[in-house]
Amino acid sequence: MTDSSIPTGNPRAGPPDPGRHDPVELGALALGVLDSDRTRAVEAHLASCASCRRDLEDLIAVTDLLGEVPPEALLDGPPDSDLVLRRTLRQMRSETAARRRRRLPRLVAAAAAVVALLAGGVAIGRATAPEPVVVTAAGPQAGAVVLQGEGVPGVSMTAVVSPAAGWVRVSTNVRGIRAGERCEVVVLTRSGLGEVAASWLTSARGEREGTQVDGAAIVAPDDVAGVAVRSESGEEFVVLRA
């Protein structure tokens, strides 16, 4: 979203006396950071402009709501120490050890199958995205690659692969896989191996509206050949090549 895309079509954005007052100053005024000269000028304008007064009231209501968000909510990244992560992983492993061990990442299915699926159409870009792709709060990464396309009939995926130092984050939105499937997002390497980046259980809603699945995999960014989604039993639903 760019600044210039916002005010279009908002009849209140233009005050009746252009040139005397810039509506963008209402934001700074609502946040209490407009300097005193400009505050006086804007307040003088507000006395005679009902639409700007309404605008300001709305913006102040928004700033009040910002107070509901704990300030920590905007901190990004991991804590300084991995202590809690290591403890959590230990607890997970000890709980998992009591159950069935999950399989390790396997070889991807035969190349022929991959080619057959690719015939369904692979596009780079998001021109045909039915809905905007939601990337998680950390924001887009430099050098991210967006893959989009179809798999078996009815299944589509958008995948954002973001490089890190020796590994990648992958953020996918997958639609059309029937509810109840146990699925994995697999990052494919150039040598034909696959590294599981995430797994999930599809829901009826996810089948209809798409499921956002984020993960990460230890695959060097320049070794990423594509992203696939398959069932735990190895059925390929969609393969997108980078």
Binding site: A73, D76, M92, A137, A138, A217
Partner: peptide, 24 residues
Amino acid sequence: MPDEALVHAVYREHGRAMLAYATR
């Protein structure tokens, strides 16, 4: 293990916010 990748990803992205909030 994909489960661990998920928890890793959550920790990497949200860990600082979670710990700071809980600590406060």
